[in-house]
Design a protein around this nucleic acid. Sequence first.
DNA 1: GAAAAGCATTATGAATTCAAAATTCCCTGA
DNA 2: TCAGGGAATTTTGAATTCATAATGCTTTTC
Lengths: 227, 227
Amino acid sequence: MTKIQPRTLYREVADRIRALIEHGELAPGERISEKQLCENFGVSRTPLREALKVLASEGLVELLPNRGARVKQLTYKMVKDTYDLMGALEGLSGELACQQISDEGIAAICALHERMLVHYHNRELSDYFQVNQRIHESLLAASNNDVLLEMYNNLSQRVKRVRYSKKMTDSYWRRAVQDHEEMIAALKKRDSKRLGQVLRDHLCNKLEVASIAGVIDDGETRSAANS
Amino acid sequence: MTKIQPRTLYREVADRIRALIEHGELAPGERISEKQLCENFGVSRTPLREALKVLASEGLVELLPNRGARVKQLTYKMVKDTYDLMGALEGLSGELACQQISDEGIAAICALHERMLVHYHNRELSDYFQVNQRIHESLLAASNNDVLLEMYNNLSQRVKRVRYSKKMTDSYWRRAVQDHEEMIAALKKRDSKRLGQVLRDHLCNKLEVASIAGVIDDGETRSAANS
DNA sequence: GAAAAGCATTATGAATTCAAAATTCCCTGA
DNA sequence: TCAGGGAATTTTGAATTCATAATGCTTTTC
């Protein structure tokens, strides 16, 4: 049950810009010309500028007073930091879910898990990812913590642009599935500490950081960010 | 080394409104009259409205399209959810801090800890809180994760209004100090898992939820939120 | 030929204006 | 007396306008 959002121009515009950034049509670091976007969207500068303020506090855009807006650069360190954070949030979601989820909820997640295993054995990567994501979303939802959900979505939005580069080696994949086995076991036992721990350490929250090395045009050295 | 923020009207206004909300001069649920605030601040509606958009995405304000803005109500559940989240973030900060902090950093925190103990034994509540907060801030800083810091500050801002009601019973206080002893021990050993665990479970992240019961004018029953 | 100064152009910040939606208030009629 | 309807008022959403800061270009000087 998600509340409907009455549409206003600035929200529409913010959504559109979010999409542009997510799909790379507005490149990281690219200067955002108010005039040009206004013309593209067919709106005046007022709602556009309001949208930019919102996007700035969401961390997608950078506002340089008197000098315009630019799409925020993702440095390696920022992405790493964000993934660390998302790992912590997933851990919390697991802990809370264990305490709150219904038996039916657990059964539903187990069912998803089984489906995921099938995709894993068939090596259907895309389907695997989709079901995998639904499992994590289910835990998030079961945690019944709206603030957590809001924050997670915000973080996830910030790094969506680099998700493309998701690569899966065989050994990574196997270990990810192992993690999931442990998750399911902990969930069934409602062992919240254990589930939290597994989720915090879950490969998915670390894996991609490795795979983005090189994707990001980064000023700082990666080793420095890693240290 | 924190970068300077060029001042613009909308930032100034946002800061002022944040302060008004934090200190209760704008009460939770209170309708925010654009006209009146404009007159108070002596600015036009444009920067005011931009500020409101920012505050809305920070979660301090609620925008009802065509029907104005209101100070966001804090429900018991929202505060509880926020504290759960902050606990998870503190846990992460501890884990990261363990891995990154210098020996001097550890020494500095130990020194703060000693000062805190003195205030505890002298029953200097206000001083105790101040030093206590500096310890947690030091860990946050040592974690060297800007995204984490940003998010923590945002969450902390949201619930600042109810921090006033902080009450300390003797047994709570004793247990909080015990937690801190464990923290220091884990930090010295650079036992990141342990420090993370202690911080996540740390009383400070749970305590106040109990003490706000009754402070918040809340539609939903507390037991329901707790279940 | 390069650098600096100054002017023109452009882009941004903020106030004002206009339009539309919501609210208030008053009136009518049962 | 009170419910319903409708006009007047207020308030908000968005466009426009105005002022100022930044940028770029030309010219001038060394």
